[in-house]
Amino acid sequence: MIDEPLSQGASLVHRRDPRFRLIACLLLSLAAALAVGPAAPLLVLGAGLVLTLLARLPPGLVLRRFVAVNAFVAFLWLALPLTTPGTPVTASFHGLAATREGVVLATLITLKANAVFFCVLSLLATIPAPALGGAMRAVGVPDKFAFLFLFTYRYLHVISDEYGRLATAARLRGFVPATSTHAYRTYAALVAMVLVRAYDRSRRVYQAMVLRGFAGRFVSLDGFAADRGDVAFLIVALAVAVAGGALEIVSWRGHV
């Protein structure tokens, strides 16, 4: 149910320091998300596509994720051209007409959403979760938050298996999903039982950790080591983000 095939690899992108990938992802996402014109998102989209190619991710998986993200965008395309006030460009149908402004806005959102998607895909999703926990601490996220993140991730698969066993047990006893009180009661019992088992497990894990001398600090064996390639990579990412911002300002001045 939950795996992270994207974080495995030995490509140019995967070899970059996770801290630098996290910062680069943030910079590029910001440059794309805050833009008002199409120039900056286009630039970041280009960068994201190049990075995705460099990361050599499985194409089938990339396509599936791409479709999932663009489902929401497609939903906006249904509504936005009709609901945005402005000059109509199509014939009016029951008082509804697509406006030029609406189409422009929907295009901009499509560009931005996909620009950020490819950055997250190539820069963030390629970081294994444990390394992301460490990278978050390195860039100033509170220790407790990083700790919560690491252990939530650590037990995701365990709890997912636990739920799988309970669901199998329910099916074995003839449970069929339906819109009925009985089915809802069963779902509630399933959810509650997952929570009860998670709670009991958390007490045991905590006791085991205290027994082994846990005192609130989490020591990691993997350190980070940035080399010149990492620095160069971050400088390029920063340059793209700044270029996006500059394009934004130039086009904004042009309008005024």
């Binding site: 149910m1 939950i2 700790f147 939530t152 650590r154 959810v191 709670y199």
Partner: peptide, 17 residues
């Protein structure tokens, strides 16, 4: 903190139901 972490994982899984 451990209880909150593992319960977060449980809620993540439950939200996939």
């Amino acid at each position: 903190i451990m209880t909150v972490a593992i319960l977060s994982a449980a809620f993540f899984v439950a939200s996939l139901i």
